[in-house]
Design a protein around this nucleic acid. Structure first.
Lengths: 358, 358
DNA sequence: ATGAAAGCGCTAACAA
DNA sequence: TTGTTAGCGCTTTCAT
């Protein structure tokens, strides 16, 4: 059985100093001579000393813990955010407590907010699709830094969805595309709204035909990307390029194109958003817009830590630039019109009838 | 600013009892009359009392915390496991500390094991592809329950990969398939080895042709599924069904089939493993084998808690049954041989040359 | 630069 | 059934 762990007192005794000197040395605080400090550190190491968090937190009056509130652990982007957050937190001597909402749309259960208030010093929230949990947390006295969701007020770390979308659209324009379809999503997420706004602005600025049929609503899944693409490609004058609100949607577009005999990128260019791992593995590999998620996770923690230290953040909203990742799903449009003669091929068993129901 | 939180002393004072009585009442311990207990609970609630974890952990001599060691947060299955674990832990009054290794193959960094030993009572490990971190943790005196990785010894919660794979293969056999290809993975994961063993056993038991060409090695990604499928379908006598080691691989097979003009499920049946969210969204939707991941996460926590309470687990390895999810990618094979005349169609830009390199 | 004293908020052990 | 007494291991504050 693990006999009692080494305590600070033991380290201090071994080093022949008081407990307080040992504490200071181990916490990188001033007031210890270099020589003594080194001896303490060496002895602590030899003894395998690891501070007792509970005691430390209790004495300090606040836990060195950051809460991480996650709504949908499945969302491909949370993984990277979490990695970044955990890394930043740990290197600052903080632990990360995980609070995953069980259902993506679940309310913050009764009592979670006060519990977080008591067990953590602050919370990073990756809940993007609703923001009514924020007032609850704030009422309980927790500092919150949001990721991707500036709406609840307070500090937010986000990516530049608007300009990211614009960079994707600029890429398509530079290739020569003039009819660019857009598959959007629910507008509850600001990221989706921003991306759509970029598309609308570009349409206007470029004097492109204001054809509302080029905008189809999806829900960020491959399934609706598939259906929406069928709808767009069945248009009398189909787009030569489709910008999808996210990668799964774009992968659905690729699928629909293949089913309809529309070749990507020869007959149709496709751009996604997020750069999920599969984006590089599709055929053709997907051109998409990458967010620096790991960095955003780190930044969120650092912002929170600054807030806790009483340092006002540089800005309430910290926006990170995105990066266009050009792969194989985009090319210049063909000169002629999209040939439609192969369209219905092989679609016998497909959900053709539903294509209009998107 | 959040004024000082309510303490146990305040609750006790308000209720007119000693601190200890209040403590007992709030911890569901015996030795408090029903009447007094109810009054204490009511007052605690009114005052918004939330126990201070640090104080509690310090006094009790052990933290009510479980560590969750994750290797690859991207892996689609960890999300569900985590949800289950967090739910079970919290309902037992434990917090979950997240330790995510930054790289999937990263060593357990120096100091992490003792740190876990100090900050948690036990650890759930979802690190499946290596097990050298286990001795480290155990040496530091941490109880560990593994998920999906029985190899380091100790308690393990896993799914029945062997019989899961068999159920998939039985499904194909019942449909009438006799030439069944298998796309495997690195054998460092026991799950992969078990699934392959099932395929080999079935081949043997059924007296199916022992054709080593039917087994292709992949690496659990869509990209290699794509390549491996091309290789299988280019065989002189191609399989009528392909069992893939996991869903991404199977999705790659679907992609390759589409490219080659091989219709699924008419010309080729495809089965995956895991039931990732996209499996239901592919075209056709993927027949696959589902693991009860959420339940496994819960079970891992409960096993750990039992271990901590000194209760020996029922068995060192707890195996959960899997469930075959039949969707649209499987059907009876066609009577004739797979027609190959359309195979090279549209593959002009594809990575045909690489198909053999899988 | 170092140390002594005090106490964080709770629970374990024992007493009544 | 209830209360009292001692800490848990650390940091804070104030001394030296």
């Amino acid at each position: 059985m693990p006999r009692r762990a080494t305590t600070l007192d033991q380290v201090a005794a071994s080093a022949g100093v008081s407990r307080m000197t040992a504490s200071r040395a181990l916490n990188n605080q001033p007031g210890v001579s270099t020589e003594v400090r080194e001896r303490i550190l060496r002895i602590a190491n030899e003894l395998g000393y690891v501070p007792n968090r509970a005691a430390r937190d209790l004495a300090a009056g606040r836990p060195r813990v950051i809460g991480l509130l996650c709504a949908d652990m499945h969302a491909p982007f949370v993984a990277e955010i979490i990695s970044g957050a955990v890394r930043a937190a740990r290197s600052a001597g903080y632990e990360v407590l995980l609070y995953s909402l069980l259902e993506p749309h679940e309310e913050l259960r009764e009592g979670v907010a006060p519990l977080l208030a008591r067990s953590t010093q602050g919370v990073i929230s990756t809940v993007v699709h609703r923001h009514d949990h924020l007032p609850q947390l704030r009422a309980a006295g927790v500092q919150v830094v949001n990721i991707e969701n500036p709406e609840g007020g307070g500090s937010t770390v986000t990516a530049d969805h608007y300009n990211g979308a614009r960079s994707a659209l600029r890429h398509l324009l530079e290739l020569g595309h003039r009819r660019i379809g857009y598959i959007g999503s629910h507008d509850e997420m600001i990221s989706s709204r921003e991306r759509r706004r970029a598309w609308e602005d570009v349409q206007r600025e470029q004097g492109l035909p204001r054809d509302r049929q080029l905008l189809v609503k999806g829900d960020n899944t491959q399934a609706t990307g598939f259906l929406a693409a069928q709808r767009l490609l069945a248009l009398p004058s189909p787009p030569t390029a489709i910008f999808a609100n996210n990668d799964p949607t774009a992968l659905g577009v690729l699928e629909a194109a293949r089913l309809l005999g529309v070749r990507v990128p020869r007959d149709l260019s496709v751009v996604g958003f997020d750069d999920v791992p599969q984006a590089a593995q599709s055929h053709p590999p997907l051109t998409t817009v990458r967010q620096p998620l790991e960095q955003m996770g780190r930044s969120a923690v650092n912002t929170l830590l600054a807030l806790l230290a009483g340092i006002d953040p540089v800005a309430p909203i910290i926006t990170f630039p995105t990066e266009l990742v050009v792969r194989g799903s985009t090319a210049a449009p063909r000169k002629g019109k999209l040939s439609l003669h192969r369209q219905r091929k092989g679609a016998g068993e497909g959900p053709d009838e539903d294509a209009r129901e998107v």
